[in-house]
Amino acid sequence: MTLLTVTGLVRDHVLPRRTLFGPAEVKRALAGVSFEMADGDTLAIIGESGSGKSTLVRLILALDSPTSGSVEFEGRRVAPGSAASLRWLRRETGIVLQDPYASLDPRMPVWRSVIEPLRALGIDGDHRAMVAEVLERVGLAAELSTRYPHELSGGQRQRVALARAIVHGPKLLIGDEPLSALDVTVRAQVVELLRELHRDLGLSMILVSHDIGLVQHFARRVIVMHDGEIVEDGPSQRVLSAPEHEYTRALLSAVPRLDGRRRR
């Protein structure tokens, strides 16, 4: 079953004019990106800065309009609009960003941050019970629910951000560099948590990252982006062990390895 269909996405940014006459310069952030994602899959989108991976995420979440092309979620067209017209999409998706500090309101205790999407999206049910359940699911002790973000560690904050992203029971979780700001021991725990969420809840996941290690340890499928295009797309096992595109090879050989060291 197809969850997401991305067809021929192009996104141009018109740059400020440098001269009075002549055409303004156009930067093509996405140059015709197409792929389909199956329900229940784990997909990593990998690329370096400027590859277009964040633009792609913004378009999938209807935070931006494409210059051309389309995004469909379960066959429904995704396009920017009013909060009410996007409520269905918000119910089906959740997002976790790189910096949990930036995605949590410093004046709200944990439980209020987590309950907020339930209220905003008009979800039925016992909100308090749903918050308690999701906090347990992400491995946060119940007594932390009255704490404020600054009273938590970085790993705990990212767990709160995760709880907030999944409390309303979305089908698709999108993470934009969700591990980059975390220490390595905390990263390992959060990766494990993501695996559990995928396994237990059947959540589909898109993780956008520059971190190839994360792909290897998490995603079934990987899309490699470079200069606004998909240069390689396939099962992570195949792409990472036998990369076909020259850029993927360059990227893989640049990753610092724990083993196979000493390239002096």
């Binding site: 290690g213 096992q237 724990l258």
Partner: peptide, 20 residues
């Protein structure tokens, strides 16, 4: 040991197969 184990779990290692 914790740092090394965590790094092995999250960083790219061409010796091990991957995914799922």
């Amino acid at each position: 040991a914790g740092l090394v184990a965590a790094a092995r779990l999250t960083s790219f290692d061409a010796r091990i197969p991957l995914g799922g």
